[in-house]
């Protein structure tokens, strides 16, 4: 229920914490990474070069660029206003074949952190998150339970951020809380 207060979306245990993160600017950016004008334009606004490597994320002071595909990135910022960032990107990309689309309202972000975080993901994510296979600063789109998600490892601990489509966010939350059940304090088994 999107409009209800989401501040109850915090669950913790000794080895796990799951919480909804405040809304942030998310912009779907499309363009040709071999086009120097495109790269330059993005860099001029975000101080970041769009990573061309799969699963890579670039993070700076203003924003992060999460790789979504060979010509697609998610520009994320917790400090910049979405509309303004969008306008600046569009301005910089004038005349370049690119697309800048606001999608911040279409995403909910959950933070999943703690020593049991990998165990929680393992219950419904086919991705190998072992430190030898997936490192801080990497991101990957995959499945969590029955929904598509974007997982971004933001910390060594490990700590992750999970991006999920707005209408699937209730399901994803219920799924995470169920999967984490055995690690949560005062687990009610819900």
């Amino acid at each position: 229920m999107a409009e209800l207060a989401r501040d109850d979306r915090l669950r913790q245990g000794a080895g796990i914490s799951i919480a909804e993160r405040p809304a942030r600017a998310c912009i779907d950016l499309r363009g040709d990474v071999t086009d120097a004008r495109f790269v330059h334009a993005v860099e001029s606004v975000t101080d970041l070069r769009p990573p061309s490597q799969g699963l890579a994320a670039a993070s700076g002071l203003l924003a992060s660029l999460l790789w979504l595909g060979p010509d697609e990135w998610l520009v994320v910022s917790e400090t910049q206003a979405s509309g303004e960032l969008c306008a600046r990107l569009r301005q910089a990309l004038r005349g370049v074949h690119a697309a800048v689309t606001e999608v911040g309202d279409a995403r909910i972000v959950y933070a999943v952190a703690g020593p049991n975080a990998r165990d929680v993901f393992a219950k419904g994510c086919p991705l190998d998150l072992h430190p030898r296979a997936f490192r801080p600063g990497q991101c990957a789109q995959t499945l969590l339970g029955k929904v598509s998600v974007l997982i971004h490892q933001v910390g060594q601990d490990p700590a992750y951020e999970v991006y999920v489509a707005r209408s699937f966010a209730d399901y994803a939350w219920a799924w995470l809380v169920t999967a984490a059940g055995e690690y949560l304090d005062g687990s009610e088994g819900k």
């Binding site: 229920m1 999107a2 419904g124 929904v147």
Partner: peptide
């Protein structure tokens, strides 16, 4: 079936105004 039963059997998608409708 794993945990895929009850509320987790299949995702239920709700619109932003779902609560009002309810």
């Amino acid at each position: 079936a794993g945990a895929d039963s009850g509320a987790l059997f299949d995702p239920v998608r709700r619109t932003p105004m779902h609560g009002w409708h309810e």
